[in-house]
Amino acid sequence: MSQSTLSAHHAHDHEHEHSSHSVFGFWAYLMTDCVLFASLFATFAMMGHQFAGGPTAKDLFNLNDVAIETALLLTSSLTFGFAMIFAQRKKTGAVLAWLIVTFLLGAGFLWLELHEFAHLIAEGASPQRSAFWSSFFTLVGTHGLHVTLGMIWLIVLAVQMVAKPGMGERELRRLACLSLFWHFLDIVWICVFSFVYLASLV
């Protein structure tokens, strides 16, 4: 076997090993995020009725806006799925188009969330008002921060694809990791919608 062939095999093995380590590291990160959100949900559950005489969830929650937020985020997960399908087909242009749609849906979700926060604070339900609102803003705000980070990550990947066209194994791996992260945020939001908004109105 020639020296060039040996070098090619060595480079391939190194890339495969690096890929395995990257995927494992990302799964480890997701597990720590699971622990983080589980702790925040547990805290919210303990503070669920501690309003300190202030406004309650029934007074201020607007399920219509929250339903729109939910629809936007779930749809963004679908559009990211389309991006992954076209990534497997090596169609960079279509991938970028679906990533842009995903970004816009995420931006719409964040705008509605910030609008809700501003409304709650204006109505006297700031994080300092009671234990309930403190735990609410911490949980929902942490999820919103994760969505923001996901959108920044999305922009970085899109810029890299524009700067270096092509859809190799490294690009697919990066997209797959972000896809897992984005779908994870969807699952967390479904829990938020169910256990924070709906349960608080019962």
Score class of each variant (00 low, 15 high):
residue 111 W to S: 13
residue 78 L to V: 14
residue 137 F to R: 00
residue 139 L to C: 08
residue 35 V to L: 15
residue 168 G to K: 07
residue 181 F to M: 05
residue 46 M to W: 07
residue 96 L to N: 08
residue 38 A to Q: 14
residue 15 E to I: 07
residue 153 W to L: 06
residue 179 S to I: 05
residue 94 A to Q: 13
residue 188 V to W: 01
residue 172 L to V: 06
residue 9 H to G: 04
residue 87 A to I: 11
residue 93 G to L: 06
residue 23 V to L: 15
residue 174 R to K: 08
residue 97 A to Y: 04
residue 86 F to E: 13
residue 199 A to Y: 06
residue 106 G to K: 04
residue 115 H to L: 10
residue 149 L to K: 12
residue 180 L to I: 08
residue 58 K to A: 03
residue 96 L to Q: 12
residue 75 T to C: 10
residue 44 F to T: 00
residue 193 F to I: 04
residue 26 F to I: 08
residue 180 L to Y: 07
residue 189 W to K: 05
residue 108 G to H: 03
residue 121 I to T: 06
residue 106 G to V: 06
residue 129 R to L: 00
residue 9 H to N: 15
residue 109 F to N: 09
residue 129 R to Y: 01
residue 169 E to N: 09
residue 155 I to T: 11
residue 100 I to R: 13
residue 198 L to T: 06
residue 6 L to E: 11
residue 102 T to L: 03
residue 20 S to T: 12
residue 134 S to W: 02
residue 181 F to D: 13
residue 16 H to M: 14
residue 43 T to P: 02
residue 91 K to C: 13
residue 32 T to R: 14
residue 179 S to C: 13
residue 20 S to D: 15
residue 57 A to V: 02
residue 15 E to W: 04
residue 6 L to C: 04
residue 81 G to C: 11
residue 109 F to T: 05
residue 20 S to Y: 09
residue 85 I to K: 15
residue 118 A to P: 04
residue 197 Y to W: 04
residue 2 S to I: 04
residue 93 G to T: 09
residue 56 T to V: 02
residue 157 L to M: 07
residue 151 M to C: 10
residue 71 A to C: 07
residue 84 M to H: 07
residue 121 I to H: 02
residue 166 G to C: 05
residue 34 C to R: 15
residue 175 L to Y: 08
residue 23 V to R: 15
residue 72 L to T: 03
residue 27 W to N: 10
residue 32 T to W: 08
residue 131 A to F: 00
residue 38 A to W: 11
residue 170 R to W: 00
residue 53 G to W: 00
residue 124 G to L: 08
residue 159 V to N: 14
residue 21 H to Y: 15
residue 196 V to P: 02
residue 191 C to W: 02
residue 191 C to G: 06
residue 153 W to I: 02
residue 103 F to T: 05
residue 85 I to W: 14
residue 78 L to W: 07
residue 33 D to G: 14
residue 185 L to W: 03
residue 4 S to V: 10
residue 179 S to M: 10
residue 14 H to V: 11
residue 102 T to S: 10
residue 90 K to T: 15
residue 78 L to G: 13
residue 78 L to M: 14
residue 88 Q to H: 11
residue 15 E to Y: 06
residue 67 A to D: 11
residue 110 L to K: 08
residue 200 S to W: 02
residue 32 T to C: 07
residue 99 L to A: 05
residue 125 A to F: 00
residue 150 G to R: 15
residue 131 A to D: 00
residue 69 E to M: 14
residue 79 T to C: 03
residue 202 V to C: 03
residue 172 L to Y: 06
residue 148 T to N: 02
residue 33 D to S: 11
residue 27 W to G: 04
residue 62 N to I: 13
residue 78 L to Q: 10
residue 176 A to H: 11
residue 101 V to S: 05
residue 106 G to M: 06
residue 135 S to L: 00
residue 95 V to Q: 10
residue 69 E to A: 04
residue 163 A to K: 12
residue 174 R to A: 00
residue 24 F to A: 15
residue 103 F to W: 06
residue 14 H to I: 08
residue 80 F to G: 07
residue 157 L to E: 01
residue 6 L to P: 01
residue 157 L to N: 01
residue 196 V to Y: 05
residue 42 A to K: 05
residue 31 M to F: 09
residue 51 F to H: 00
residue 145 L to F: 12
residue 27 W to K: 12
residue 58 K to Q: 11
residue 168 G to I: 03
residue 109 F to V: 02
residue 90 K to Q: 15
residue 103 F to K: 11
residue 122 A to H: 13
residue 166 G to A: 10
residue 88 Q to Y: 10
residue 127 P to Y: 02
residue 56 T to H: 00
